[in-house]
């Protein structure tokens, strides 16, 4: 009887579950299933062969861009959070929260006009003689531009999560180290970082997945030439070629990559 009453409370979950199942769970299954089908519904591996032939490089490129951005975000995030934890955050902490509230599309557009060959950054650097405007480096329309934009946008989340973890380390653990002469870098390296590894791993997986799945930022500042981020390939395959088979095969590849990151995280957590 009690069991029945408890189960009946689950009724409140029905509407939201229905939406998430209909528009995420089932499409997720559908994309996995149709990636093994031709347009007529026959079973095939052709989509994966085509995807491998055309987009193998793009998959590596996506992992590379996301990985570089993630490492940059983590290094800066740990250093800034460590500084803020030990000496107090103040303005630094506030400034880094701003990107959290700037929409992805806006980040993409802003980076595009900022990093363009004749954008504000190159113009400003040219004023102090660091850049020759007759032959300006194009940061925006290269992997560097995407990396910079992804790192810029994700920095806020990284610092929020890492600083949160650092703040849950009690003052006395730091003071005990300071007592023996550990400077701020050593306090970060010997105490804060090892005591927050789990939370940082969570942050890393969240951020890596979000970078891998980024769509609007590469849409805004990608060049359309050369290697592309994976999500751009999926979008073009569907919108311009109506080829759901290959697009879904690429989608499955992106799921597996995201899952790989998650599994790595779970293993590192259970290990210790």
């Amino acid at each position: 009887m009690k069991r029945l009453r408890e189960t009946s409370w689950l009724i409140v979950a029905v509407p939201s579950l229905a939406i998430v199942v209909w528009l995420f769970f089932l499409p997720f299954i559908r994309s996995a299933v149709t990636s093994f089908q031709t347009e007529d519904g026959a079973w095939t591996f052709q989509n994966y062969i085509t995807a491998y032939r055309l987009y193998a490089g793009d998959v590596l490129y996506t992992i590379f861009v996301s990985g570089v951005s993630l490492i940059a975000v983590l290094i800066i995030g740990i250093l800034v959070s460590g500084f803020a934890r030990i000496y107090g955050g103040g303005v630094v902490e506030f400034l880094f929260k701003i990107p959290l509230f700037v929409p992805f599309v806006v980040v993409g557009h802003a980076m595009r006009v900022f990093l363009a060959p004749h954008g504000l950054l190159n113009s400003a650097l040219a004023q102090i003689g660091l850049v020759n405007l007759d032959n300006p480096p194009s940061i925006a329309f290269s992997w560097v531009g995407i990396s910079v934009a992804l790192a810029w946008k994700n920095m806020a989340l990284a610092i929020l999560l890492i600083l949160g973890a650092f703040e849950s380390v009690g003052d006395t653990f730091l003071e005990a180290a300071r007592n023996f002469g550990a400077g701020w870098f050593r306090q970060v390296k010997d105490v804060l970082l090892p005591m927050s590894l789990t939370s940082i791993a969570v942050a890393a997986v969240l951020i890596f997945t979000s970078m891998l799945a980024s769509f609007s930022i590469p849409m805004m500042i990608g060049s359309g030439k050369g290697a592309q981020m994976l999500m751009i390939d999926v979008y073009y395959r569907i919108v311009y070629q109506h080829d759901y088979g290959v697009a879904n095969a690429l989608g499955v590849v992106s799921y597996i990559t995201a899952m790989g990151a998650a599994v790595y995280y779970l293993r590192s957590v259970t290990k210790g």
Binding site: L10, L17, V20, F24, A213, A258, A262
Partner: peptide, 28 residues
């Protein structure tokens, strides 16, 4: 409440967070 299937319910609400949106939304 200690409702049944709680872990499963929470897991379904975790999925969209763990996987890329675009390929799923394209099928949605």
């Amino acid at each position: 409440f200690r409702v049944p299937f709680k872990a499963a319910v929470l897991l379904i609400f975790l999925l969209p967070q763990a996987f890329p949106q675009l390929p799923v939304f394209a099928n949605a």
